[in-house]
Simulated scan of single mutants.
Amino acid sequence: MITRRDFMKFVGGSFASFTALGSYAFAFEPLARLSVTRYALTPPGWTPGLKLRIVALADIHACEPWMSASRIVSICRQANDLGGDITVLLGDYASGMNFVTRHVHSSEWSKALATLEAPLGVHAIMGNHDWWEDRTAQRNGRGPTFGHRALQDVGIKVYSNEAVRFEKDGNGFWLAGLEDQRALRAGKKWKRKHLKGLDDLDGTLAQVSDTAPTILLAHEPDIFPKVPSRVALTLSGHTHGGQVRLLGHSPMVPSSYGDRYAYGHIVEDDRSLIVSGGLGCSIAPIRFGVPPEIVVVDLG
């Protein structure tokens, strides 16, 4: 029979455990951890002899104390040391969270991101929060947002349904970037009944004028079922891996497909998608089992 003393020990131990887990998820993992997650693959139809290293950063959500400008600079320095041929930014630079001590202005986070370096340049797309935090863009139903302008002002190329051709060691490849799939919010305030995306997958891929492989940047992974096999790799963020991931499963994911595209390397019909767990937090400053990460992809 359990005694009152044993019961109190159990309650006290459980409380201490939950407190420790909560402190880890709230303070340590979002603030103190940074992982480098590496993938290596050769997609079908990839050009023989073309070796390309991509360094990808997603979902920064700049705000204090969680993602200050100085922390972004520190992350960028680590990204620069990873030897990427090209660096890509997968959207959501704006905070999108109320649990902050200060919102970091776009002029600050863009200046921090300007410290990124790569031989083939730094290239960006926008995310839903970059659109949602810009009331003028929401009211007008179009951009550019303050995020577009901030990145362009520091010399970072921003893709809005655009494809650009590159070469490495005499071999060509295309980088294509979609505008956000959830850009315009619904509501009476914005005179819209439904959420509206500004992405144009067909129009973007129509700009690819030869058979060189294409890498697609798409903030939300939900576009993946529509991506044709001619695209060698799709890179996405948005989900944060669910921010809480237990035994390889995320109980809550901001995706119409649930856990299907929550995190990691997903292969369907010989098509590859890599979803970054991102760097910052959205809605609540909690991460557990999916620490902030920089993604490195070696192709070929």
Rank of each mutant, 00 (worst) to 15 (best):
V275T: 03
Y159V: 08
K168C: 11
G13C: 03
V227G: 10
S255D: 08
G197M: 09
M67K: 06
M8S: 08
H219Y: 10
L89E: 07
R139D: 13
F18A: 13
A40G: 10
T37S: 02
V297S: 05
G300W: 00
A137S: 13
R135N: 11
R38P: 07
T42Y: 06
V11S: 05
V231G: 06
A212D: 13
G141F: 05
I75D: 10
G91C: 09
K51Q: 12
T204S: 02
G237L: 13
P43T: 00
P65V: 04
D210A: 05
V36A: 06
Q243L: 07
W109H: 13
S70I: 11
K226L: 15
L31F: 05
A212F: 01
T87H: 10
A218M: 12
S272V: 02
G203V: 08
V158C: 00
Y257F: 12
P251W: 02
T239M: 04
L175Q: 02
S229C: 12
S107I: 12
E179T: 06
G300H: 00
R135I: 14
V208E: 12
T42S: 08
I283C: 02
D269I: 02
K9R: 15
S14W: 09
I54Y: 01
S14D: 01
G289R: 07
I286F: 01
P48G: 05
A62G: 05
K193M: 11
V290M: 01
Q78G: 03
W109A: 06
I2G: 07
K111Q: 13
D200T: 08
E108C: 02
A206R: 14
G147H: 07
R135W: 11
A284N: 10
L279V: 08
P221D: 05
K51I: 03
S282R: 05
P144L: 01
A206D: 15
S209F: 03
V227E: 02
A27Y: 15
M97L: 11
V227L: 03
P44K: 05
D298I: 12
V154N: 03
V36C: 00
V295F: 03
S250E: 13
R142E: 15
Y93R: 02
T3N: 06
V297G: 00
F99Q: 13
H249S: 03
K191Q: 14
R182I: 08
D202S: 13
N98R: 12
V290K: 05
A124E: 04
L82G: 10
A112N: 07
D269K: 12
L246G: 02
G170P: 00
G241F: 11
W174T: 08
L247V: 09
F146I: 15
G127P: 04
R192G: 01
D92P: 00
A79Y: 06
H249W: 15
G241D: 04
Y93I: 10
L82Y: 01
Y261F: 13
I266V: 10
V296W: 01
L120N: 02
A137T: 11
H61N: 14
D202M: 06
Y263F: 12
H219I: 12
W66L: 13
L205V: 07
V100T: 14
V154H: 05
T3Y: 01
Y263P: 00
L205W: 13
N140R: 14
D199P: 05
A284S: 09
S110F: 07
S250C: 08
G83W: 02
V253M: 04
L90H: 09
C63Y: 08
R182G: 01
R192Y: 04
L195V: 13
H219L: 10
E133V: 09
L246C: 05
A20D: 03
